[in-house]
């Protein structure tokens, strides 16, 4: 349809899809732990490596993890990071912030979170970090119980201790 403004070139048609999300057995096990202030993982029966959170199976070997749960520390090593300076819809945090990969002590899989209480120019690989939890009376079965990670002040972990997890 052309008029003095020219032809219509693009039309925005927003759509919305509402989901009822069921966490499933594996994520429920992990989130119930987080509700108690604990990080629970499961071991792969083939190589013995600990997945936190486990999705219920080892992606490498295609077998169920467990059946036992393994509690790991809420401290760990920052194995890599990015300083995110660009905004995006859906982000839980306002840029700039440090998005970090954390290898929790006792775990062999890493998780992504935010590092705070640390100047951005001091963020580095190998830094020792710990989870900062909401006050206990606000805990729910969600990773939002952990507001962020912060440096512990311990000496940095040597590169060799995490280089196979990059």
């Amino acid at each position: 349809m052309a008029d003095e403004k020219g032809p219509v070139e693009i039309v925005q048609t927003p759509v919305e899809l509402d989901y009822t999300y069921t966490a499933g057995q594996a994520a429920t096990r992990f989130l119930k732990g987080v509700e108690q202030g604990k990080f629970l993982g499961q071991r792969c029966p083939v190589d013995g490596l600990v997945y936190v959170a486990s999705r219920g199976s080892s992606p490498k070997h295609g077998v169920p993890t467990g059946p036992d749960t393994v509690e790991v520390s809420d401290k760990g090593t920052l194995i890599s990071f990015s300083i995110v300076r660009i905004p995006s819809a859906n982000l839980s945090v306002e840029p700039p912030f440090a998005a970090i990969s954390v290898l929790l002590d006792g775990a062999d899989s890493h998780l992504m979170h935010v590092l705070d209480e640390c100047p951005l120019e001091e963020v580095r690989m190998g830094m020792r970090v710990e989870a900062v939890w909401l006050p206990k009376d606000q805990w729910t079965a969600s990773m939002q119980n952990v507001t962020h990670f912060r440096p512990t002040g311990e000496p940095d972990a040597p590169f060799d201790s995490y280089k196979d997890h990059l």
């Binding site: 999300y21 966490a23 994520a27 989130l31 890599s80 990071f81 990015s82 995110v84 660009i86 905004p87 995006s88 859906n90 982000l91 839980s92 945090v93 840029p95 912030f97 998005a99 970090i100 990969s101 992504m112 979170h113 935010v114 079965a141 969600s142 990773m143 939002q144 952990v146």
Partner: peptide, 16 residues
């Protein structure tokens, strides 16, 4: 659901 979103697009994933 139940998680924090910190990976900002492809760049956020690949930077680390």
């Amino acid at each position: 659901p139940f998680s924090v979103a910190v990976v900002a697009g492809a760049g956020g994933y690949f930077a680390p």
